[in-house]
Design a protein around this nucleic acid. Structure first.
Length: 550
RNA sequence: GGUUCCAUGGUAAAUCGGUUAAUACACCACCCUUUCACGGUGGAGUGGGGGGUUCGACUCCCCCUGGAAUCACCA
């Protein structure tokens, strides 16, 4: 078989690969510098696993003094979702992840190693395809392609049931030049397959940057390289692009690990220097049935990065949480360096665990609450209005109506040595933390279970008469105490504990009644601060509202 | 079913052959407190099972079990 002839037949116009090798020379970097990349396919919003990798990529590039680029793997036109590229770019921007090269908004690009959009690289792929054919390492396959994945699965199921018949080599593997010529003349579309020389009985040593030294079996599959639509498949595009873009470290999900051997064979067949790999664990969750499974972008809200943006988690909360999953020593570093910027953390690929971590909302929320508790009211306000202006326009109107009022609300129990930790995400402000401070969201639907309604009424009715907005905090409390005593509540808590039957309750209970009137709930921060921020008229109005409603 | 990866409390995990097996979140109790929180103190809870190797194993080896990934002209 004359492979050169076959190559000319298949790719008559493809240019020699030297053109590309010269156009994209090796990068000049100091030793140890890693070139990493984030290369999603534009199939909708960003998955948390992708973002996780992306975070690792950017950290490693930065901490080794290398560089990080952004490539778009748009080779599956069927699955493509419009707007995905912009969405990914926006997400990276929102999360403060900057890339040195790659696709930008409006279809522009920066960097000397582009195009960074795979669909714009077909000419390059054709050159390498031709080279591979010419060296006898790839061949055209004219077989009919499966309609869809369902069909593939059915076929697989059949194979399983017949005790999995061994996969045979592709029938097109040994087509003669004449046969190829004839099919081509009939305008039959073809896919390009790798002619694998591997033997799965043999294995070789390989060092994964996360998993360490591993032994893997050789690949023997004649994997598809270029689809019949002329676009490359992941493996081929990965090999060509990461070679030509001079990537040094490929960080990707563990789901790629099983196909690693075929990728390595491809690199070797094309004469490329191998890149290093770091296979990350897949972020999983415990599902409704108690089982563990990979987080799904479709089924799980936390699988979708958009969720965190839409609900208003500060970007650093998400980053810090993912960092604790990626490098478990991050948490210790953070405790030792509470004031340092995230960027100063020294990230290590080999510290990434190889077992799949479970996503834990409780932990994320704790991290986030701590971060927000350290912000000033002004900072929270900025974050809140930025979020609300995009995702809760109505609330945005409400909080911007009186900026100073909103800031005063956000400042309650904040400027203390031990600030409250109650906001995990911006949507909490309205929904579970401060809603009642705004008339629109103050619902006089009181939580009255276990409350003695008559006593509640009595306390509020009495208190509304003696309330003095000008009181200092001490005066304010003294007044409540005095009133409590007069109404038959224990002023001394020890006494109350000793003889609870002698009193209607204690001062704590009186406060609870006032709290119910003021906030509609049984928990809220310091009542004095709340009254002061609400203002005298509003305080009185709420007392009246309660007295009328019960 | 084949191949592969993984295995310390509920979750994230430290240890890298000798420890009362750290720590954080969550949980419980108590303290602080006018309430809710925050904070403080304490508590319960972990090496999947079975074989080896070793004076000694959570740590090394083997088997089993369990979980996960993958087996597309998808990435």
């Amino acid at each position: 078989m004359d492979y050169n002839k076959l190559a000319d037949l298949l790719y008559p116009t493809a240019v020699n690969t030297d053109v590309w090798e010269n156009k994209y020379p090796k990068r000049e970097l100091k030793t140890g510098a890693e070139v990493t990349r984030f290369a999603p396919s534009p199939t909708g919003s960003l998955h948390i696993g992708h973002f996780f990798q992306c975070l690792c990529d950017s950290y490693i590039a930065k901490s080794t003094g290398g560089l990080f680029f952004f490539r778009v793997e748009d080779t599956d036109k069927k699955r493509e979702v419009e707007g995905s590229v912009d969405n990914a770019i926006n997400t990276l921007e929102k999360f403060g992840i900057f890339y040195d090269e790659g696709v930008m908004k409006n279809g522009e690009e920066k960097g000397e190693y582009g195009p960074y959009l795979q669909s714009a690289r077909t000419e390059i792929y054709r050159s390498y395809a031709k080279k591979l054919v010419a060296s006898g390492r790839a061949y055209p396959c004219f077989c009919e392609k499966p309609e869809n994945f369902e069909e593939v699965k059915e076929k697989r199921q059949e194979q399983l049931e017949e005790n999995f018949a061994l996969q045979q080599k592709d029938p097109c593997r040994d087509l003669s030049l004449e046969e190829v010529e004839q099919k081509l003349s009939q305008n039959k579309p073809f896919a390009l397959r790798l002619k694998s020389l591997g033997d799965p009985e043999k294995s070789f040593k390989f060092k994964d940057e996360v998993k360490g030294e591993r032994e893997i079996r050789e690949n023997s599959k004649d994997i598809i390289l270029i689809k019949s639509d002329g676009l490359p498949v992941y493996a081929f595009a990965h090999a060509v692009d990461d070679h030509l873009m001079r990537t040094t470290l490929v960080i990707r999900g563990e789901e790629w690990y099983p196909s690693l051997a075929s990728h390595l064979e491809l690199f070797d067949a094309m004469g490329f220097e191998r890149v290093k790999y770091a296979h990350n664990p897949v972020i999983s969750k415990i599902d409704e049935n108690g089982g563990k499974r990979k987080i799904s972008k479709r089924k799980d809200k936390e699988g979708n990065m958009a969720y965190f943006i839409e609900t208003g988690y500060p970007v650093n909360s998400i980053k810090e949480y993912l960092l604790t999953l990626a490098n478990s020593n991050f948490e210790i570093w953070r405790r030792q360096n509470p004031e340092k910027s995230l960027e100063e953390f020294e990230f290590k690929a080999e510290k990434i665990t190889s077992s799949n971590p479970m996503f834990d909302f409780a932990k994320l929320n704790d991290i986030s609450k701590t971060i927000i508790s350290k912000m000033t009211a002004e900072e929270v306000y900025q974050e809140l209005s930025r979020w609300a202006s995009e995702f809760d326009k109505e609330f945005f109107e409400v909080i911007s109506r009186d900026e100073n009022y909103t800031k005063a609300v956000l400042n309650i129990d904040r400027e203390t040595p031990k600030p409250r930790k109650d906001i995990a995400k911006m949507s909490d402000v309205k929904e579970s933390v401060w809603g009642y401070m705004f008339n629109e969201y103050f619902k006089p639907e009181y939580e009255l279970e276990n409350a003695n309604v008559e006593n509640l009424k009595e306390v509020v009715a009495t208190y509304t008469n003696i309330y003095n907005h000008a009181d200092t905090k001490d005066e304010w409390f003294a007044r409540i105490k005095e009133m409590s005593g007069g109404l038959g509540y224990a002023v001394d808590n020890k006494e109350f504990k000793a003889n609870p039957e002698k009193f209607k309750g204690n001062v704590a209970l009186v406060c609870e009644y006032i709290r119910i009137a003021l906030t509609g709930r049984k928990n809220s921060p310091d009542l004095y601060s709340i009254s002061q921020v609400l203002g005298e008229n509003e305080v009185k109005r709420r007392f009246e509202l309660l007295l009328k409603s019960i």
